[in-house]
Design a protein around this nucleic acid. Structure first.
Lengths: 190, 190
DNA sequence: ACTAAAACTTACTTATCAGTAAGTAATCCT
DNA sequence: AGGATTACTTACTGATAAGTAAGTTTTAGT
């Protein structure tokens, strides 16, 4: 009847990613997704048997996404600061569209998540963490960055600043996030 | 019939606080609370007309709680570091019982919260923020702390480290939280 | 052109949610 | 002692959730 969309599955993931960052895992339904696609909720079940399969798909998509970013940074020739700024930019975009970091979102709902996806969550975090850690290490080696903690700990500090920064920005506004962002960069340069 | 409990309302808030820190606002029900009290869900509705009234009550309880802590710190004669450690201790306890900070919890669900409680959320944050800010200011004045950012910004950095730190700890473990905590204190002393 | 698989819709089920109205039992006030 | 208030229970309602079975249309391969 109407035109068929051959990549409905990808669209579902795209919408699911949006919803989970806007409202969280427990606050969106298959109906929310199917409505946006002008379909029935059973259509979503066709592509993802259950909600946990969808979440697994979304997390896997993020893993792929960060793998791509990682390769992109590696072959970019950019300075460590430019790489880090590319990473931070992602969080600034989240603030712009009233969303929060996927990691913060799943972490908040973690105790209600099905066991099957908990490991994938840890995998995603480790991936992001090691990306930041490597960039910090590189920046320290070539004199761009200066910090006294281990690269791992410094990465933790930055990650938590950003993750909670976007959460806070929802409530107390963009200004607080911007202050965090500026302080973060300033301290690394010092 | 059975013994009547005169402070059911406080018990409801106590259980509500636990549930919201464990699972989030959208992932607990009146039934979860009433079961723990061996009552019917209508009993909870008797004390709190709707879920948003309960959330307002919970947030108000936190405001009172932090007001008490504030006064306690003010009249304690403690050093700024001791005051800050008292504050940090609260977050360490959260990690211990697999919970997250109330602020992070409501921030994650913020876009799904009823309008009536959004302002109370902002009020709670401002209260906690100014408490930390004052303690930092005091510590800087008397030479206990050393930091280059404004006290407000430094408070933001610490708050976000802690809030996201407890979230992260759920997934990647207590070790990461401890590293954050140690780094935080070390940097202030430097 | 025929067939099989893919991509759906229709129509439903079961469970759980927040919320409510009416009734009951205990307690307090006078 | 009597009446009102407090603190519930009983017994619902309507909405929405995830999920499913069976049927239908579309597309792709041969």
């Amino acid at each position: 009847m109407t035109a068929r969309n051959t990549d409905t599955k990808e669209e579902i993931i795209r919408i699911g990613k949006e919803l989970i960052k806007l409202y969280g895992y427990n606050a969106f339904s298959y109906a929310d997704i199917s409505k946006q696609l002008n379909m029935k909720n059973a259509a979503v079940h066709y592509h993802f048997r259950g909600k946990e399969d969808l979440l697994a798909g979304i997390l896997e998509n993020y893993v792929q996404d960060y793998a791509t970013l990682g390769k992109q940074l590696q072959s970019s020739g950019w300075s460590a600061m430019q790489k880090l700024e590319k990473f931070i930019e992602r969080y600034s975009c989240l603030v712009e569209c009233n969303s929060i970091c996927i990691i913060g979102s799943v972490a908040s709902d973690y105790n209600t998540l099905p066991e099957s996806v908990k490991e994938k969550t840890a995998e995603l975090i480790e991936m992001v963490m090691s990306m930041v850690e490597k960039t910090l290490q590189e920046g320290k080696r070539n004199g761009e960055f200066s910090f006294t903690e281990s690269a791992r700990t410094q990465a933790l500090l930055i990650m938590t600043n950003l993750a909670a920064g976007v959460q806070l920005a929802r409530i107390s506004g963009k200004k607080d996030y911007d202050a965090i962002k500026r302080a973060l960069i300033r301290q690394l340069k010092k």
